[in-house]
Measured scan of single mutants.
Amino acid sequence: HNLTITQGKLFFHYNPKLCLSEIHKMEEVSGTKGRQERNDIALKTNGDQASCENELLKFSYIRTSFDKILLRWEPYWPPDFRDLLGFMLFYKEAPYQNVTEFDGQDACGSNSWTVVDIDPPLRSNDPKSQNHPGWLMRGLKPWTQYAIFVKTLVTFSDERRTYGAKSDIIYVQTDATNPSVPLDPISVSNSSSQIILKWKPPSDPNGNITHYLVFWERQAEDSELFELDYCLKGLKLPSRTWSPPFESEDSQKHNQSEYEDSAGECCSCPKTDSQILKELEESSFRKTFEDYLHNVVFVPRKTSSGTGAEDPRPSRKRRSLGDVGNVTVAVPTVAAFPNTSSTSVPTSPEEHRPFEKVVNKESLVISGLRHFTGYRIELQACNQDTPEERCSVAAYVSARTMPEAKADDIVGPVTHEIFENNVVHLMWQEPKEPNGLIVLYEVSYRRYGDEELHLCVSRKHFALERGCRLRGLSPGNYSVRIRATSLAGNGSWTEPTYFYVTDYLDVPSNIA
C-alpha cells in the first residue's frame, strides 16, 4: 500500500525493539523526510534493546553428524571492536523451508527459537588472519532439518551509529543413524509349514526405512522333555500350542467401542483428552525405555581390526524358502538304536541362519518350516543398504507352526516275539517326523474274553527296548493296539495285532 503524509511529521519514542533503520525507511515511504526535528525521533529510546544489523554474515563451514552440527561463519568486528559482546545463534526444527525470524513471537518477546549466546573469538592483530567464530550444536535429532541463523550482539553506541551483522536463515539436516526397533511384532501360524509375521514401523526411523531383515531359527525343545518319565503317576503330560491366527481386521481397528449394538453396526467412541494424553505418555515412556535398553543392555560386537582377528559373527547367506525346513542338525536320541526319531534339535552355532529381506511392506510369510516346531524370529529395521547396512537392534518374537495331521501315527506293522515265561516283546517304529517329539506310547492289549488293559511306555523305555515287553501273560489269544502321544496330543491307534500265548508248562520236552 502507498502511504503519503502531505502535512505533519513523524514522532517515535520509547520503541526499544524498533531499529532506527526501520524508522528511516518509514520517513522515505511516507514522504516526511526532512520535516522531523532532532528530538522527534529519539536516538536513545528507539532500538536500544534490539540488534540492528546492516551487514550480512556468511557461514564459512558446515559439518553434520547424526546428532551434531558444527558451524563456522566469517569474522565480524565493528569499528570499535570492544562493542562486540558476542553472537546469538538461533535454531529450531523446520520440516519445511518457510521459516521466518519472527515465527511464534508474542507480545512478551518470546519466540519459538532456541538461542545460544556465543563469546567472540580472540581478536588477531592481523586483519587478514582473524579467527572464524563458530559453535557445535549438540543433542539434535537424527535425520531432522533445522533452520539456523546467527547475528551479532553489540553494545549501545553513544554516537548512535547503527552497526551489526546478521546471516540469512539456512537449512541444515542432520545425518541418518540406526533406527529404533520395529514396533509390535506379531507372529502367527496359518499352516503346519508357515508363519505369518506382521509389525509396525519404528517410532524413530532416523532416516528413510529402506528394508527390513527377518531372521528365523528353529528352537530346540526343553531338555526336561527328553529326561522326564511322563508315565509316572502324578506327572502331567506336557503340551505345546501353536500360535493362533490373526483376529479379523475389524476387531483390530483402534479407537473402536468394545460393545456392539445388537441391531447392527455401531460407531466408534472418540477417545477423551485424558485417554489420548495417557497414550502419549505411555508411548514416550516406551521410547525412553527402549533407548535405555539399547544403550545399557546391548553391547556392540567388536569388529575385526587390522591384526587379522576374525569377526566372530557368522556370515549372512541367503537361502531359498524351500530350504528352511531342514535348518537344524538332527541327532538321534540314543545312538545305539537307529530307529528312534531325530527330534532332539541342538543347533550348531556355526550354522548360517536363513533370512529374508523385506522391502516396502511390514509383513512376511515364512514358508518351508517344520510342522509343530518353535521358531525364534528376529526382526531388524534398516535405513541404508549400501555401502553397508545400517540397521536397528533386533526385536524378537516366537511362534510355533501348526501340527501336521497323521504325523504322530505309527507307520509300519507292530511285530512281536514270544519268549519263555510268557513274555512277549512288542516292537514298532517311532514316527519319523512327529509333531514336536514323542513323549510316550500307549499300549492297549486284551486277552479274548477279558477286559482291555493299558500300559504306558516312556520315551526312554522305548529307546532301550525298541518297544516294550509284556510279562506274566496268561495263555490265550491276544490283540494289541499302540498309539503315540506327542507334544500336540495323541496320534491314531494302530491296526490290531494278534498273537497267541501258550502255557509254557505244557511245552513238550526233548528229553527222552
Rank of each mutant, 00 (worst) to 15 (best):
N435I: 00
P346T: 13
L455I: 13
S257A: 13
L213Q: 14
R313D: 07
K361A: 10
S458C: 12
T340P: 12
D311R: 06
K236L: 08
V297I: 06
S284W: 13
I377S: 03
S492L: 14
C231S: 04
N206D: 02
L232V: 15
Y504V: 09
R400A: 11
H425V: 15
S348L: 12
S479V: 08
N435H: 04
V443F: 00
K361Y: 13
W242K: 03
H454Y: 14
K357W: 03
D408E: 03
L213R: 10
S203E: 07
R301K: 11
V345P: 15
D311S: 13
S284T: 09
R471Y: 15
Y448L: 09
E217V: 13
R481K: 15
E362D: 15
C382F: 00
S243A: 12
G436V: 13
L232K: 13
N383C: 07
S342N: 12
C269A: 06
S239N: 13
E442Y: 14
F499A: 04
V397A: 11
M427A: 12
A309P: 12
E417M: 05
T288P: 03
N208W: 13
T502H: 06
T401I: 09
E417A: 12
K302C: 14
L237T: 04
N421G: 10
F215K: 10
Y500S: 09
T494G: 00
Y396Q: 03
N326W: 04
R318H: 09
E282L: 05
S262E: 02
E351M: 11
E290P: 02
S274E: 05
L232W: 04
P205D: 15
Y498W: 10
L225W: 09
R447F: 03
I482C: 05
S342E: 09
A463R: 12
D291P: 03
P338T: 10
V331Q: 11
T343D: 07
F419K: 13
K317Q: 11
T333P: 03
F285E: 06
T386M: 13
K236E: 04
D229T: 05
H211Y: 15
V501P: 03
N255K: 02
E452R: 06
V358L: 08
E279I: 05
R319K: 15
D409Q: 09
L277P: 01
S251R: 07
R240T: 13
V331F: 07
D506E: 04
Q252E: 10
D291M: 06
G472C: 06
L369H: 08
E465H: 14
S342C: 11
H294L: 02
I410M: 11
T328C: 06
P338K: 06
A220R: 09
Y478W: 10
S348A: 15
D323P: 10
S274W: 14
V327C: 15
Y504Q: 13
L321F: 06
T401Q: 01
N295F: 01
N255V: 05
S344N: 07
D261G: 07
F289M: 01
E279V: 04
K302H: 09
Y445F: 05
T272N: 08
L505R: 06
W493V: 00
Q380E: 15
G306I: 14
L321S: 09
V296H: 09
L364R: 12
S344L: 10
P403S: 03
R318D: 11
N421R: 14
D261M: 09
F372C: 15
S257W: 10
A484M: 09
G374S: 07
Q256A: 15
L426S: 01
S342L: 15
M427P: 05
K233Y: 12
H461D: 15
R483Y: 04
E282I: 06
E282Y: 04
V439Q: 08
S320R: 12
D291G: 05
P349S: 10
S474G: 05
L213T: 15
G467Y: 15
